[in-house]
Amino acid sequence: MRTIRPAWLVVATVVLGVAGWTTTELTSRASLPLPVLPFSSLATMGLIVVVCLILGFKVRHWRDGHRDRVLDPLVAARTLVLAQACAYAGAVLLGWHLGILVDQLDTIPL
């Protein structure tokens, strides 16, 4: 298993930012609603992040020498995969919504 590369997260954010901006431009020209996620998806992502943090702290606690119980290696591997998936999902969602925000900045009255 490889470590996550921050450059890939930045690339995903930039690519999805451009895609979000382009999509918002096209939908606004066609008088369609903005393609944003509902607030329930934010709550769901937050819940997944909390679960990932709890599992990550358990693995870190075991790694730091508190080995009173046996840690299942499969749980540790799944925790790593979940953390990496959360990082990529966060980068994708951040990029998409930053692209929408950049497109909508000119509609904000100053």
Rank of each mutant, 00 (worst) to 15 (best):
L47W: 05
S28W: 00
G46N: 03
T3L: 09
I4L: 15
P6L: 14
D64V: 07
C52G: 14
T107H: 10
I48S: 10
M1N: 08
S28H: 09
R2S: 12
R60S: 11
F57E: 13
I100C: 04
I4A: 09
V51M: 09
H66D: 12
R69D: 14
L37S: 14
V59L: 03
P73N: 01
V50M: 12
Q84M: 03
T13D: 04
L9I: 11
Q104S: 10
R78W: 06
V50Q: 06
A76R: 00
W96C: 07
V81A: 07
P73F: 00
C86M: 15
V36K: 03
A30N: 05
C52Y: 01
A12M: 14
L34E: 09
V59D: 00
L80I: 04
T79L: 00
L47T: 14
A77Q: 10
R29N: 10
V50D: 01
S31R: 10
A12S: 11
L98I: 15
G56I: 05
G99L: 02
P109K: 08
M1E: 12
D106K: 10
A91F: 04
V11H: 04
H66Q: 13
P73S: 03
S40I: 15
G99A: 03
W96K: 05
W8P: 02
R78A: 05
A83C: 02
L37I: 14
A85M: 11
V50H: 02
G99R: 02
L42I: 15
A85W: 07
V92P: 03
G17L: 06
A43S: 11
H66G: 02
G90T: 10
G56F: 01
V75D: 05
I100G: 00
M45F: 14
A76T: 02
T27G: 00
L82I: 09
A91V: 06
G20I: 04
V70W: 04
E25I: 08
V102I: 15
A89T: 13
V75C: 00
A76V: 08
A89P: 00
C52L: 12
